[in-house]
Amino acid sequence: MSSGNSNLLVSCKNKSGAEKHYLPALKAAGWAGTVLLVTPGDPLPDLAGIAGLLLTGGDDIHPRHWDEAEAVHLKADVDAGRDGFEIPLVRAAWERRLPILGICRGEQVLNVALGGSLVQDIPDHYGCEPSRHQHGTPDQPDMRHRVQLAPGSRLRALLGEDVFLVNSRHHQAVKRVAPLLAAVGWHLDTVHAATGPLVEAVETTDPTRWVFGVQWHPENLVGLKGPAGDAARDLFAAFVKAIGHR
Rank of each mutant, 00 (worst) to 15 (best):
A29Y: 05
V147S: 10
F239D: 14
T195D: 15
T34M: 05
H245N: 13
L114R: 00
E19T: 06
V222P: 08
L235Q: 10
L44T: 13
V147R: 02
G196E: 14
V191R: 15
F212W: 06
L118Q: 07
K241C: 08
L26W: 01
R246T: 13
V112Q: 10
P138Y: 02
H170A: 04
G84V: 06
L101D: 08
G152L: 01
K20G: 02
S2V: 05
M1G: 14
D124Q: 13
G84D: 11
S117T: 05
H135Y: 02
H145T: 04
H21R: 03
Q120W: 05
N7P: 00
G33E: 12
L224W: 12
S16K: 13
K75W: 07
V90C: 06
N5H: 15
K13S: 10
Q148L: 12
G116K: 06
A201Y: 07
L98E: 07
P207D: 15
G84I: 04
W31V: 04
K175F: 01
R156D: 10
K75F: 10
A92M: 11
S2M: 06
I243N: 06
N5Q: 08
L8T: 05
Q108D: 10
S6W: 03
Q108S: 05
L235W: 09
W186Q: 04
N14E: 13
Q120S: 04
K27V: 09
K225H: 13
P227A: 11
L74S: 12
D46K: 05
D230R: 15
V72Y: 05
P207G: 02
G106M: 01
L47M: 08
A182K: 15
I50Y: 05
R209C: 03
V191Q: 13
F236A: 08
V191N: 12
G4C: 12
T56P: 13
L188S: 11
K13T: 10
R144L: 03
A76W: 00
G4L: 14
R105H: 04
L37H: 09
G244F: 03
G160S: 05
S2E: 12
R146E: 15
V10F: 05
H65G: 07
G57A: 15
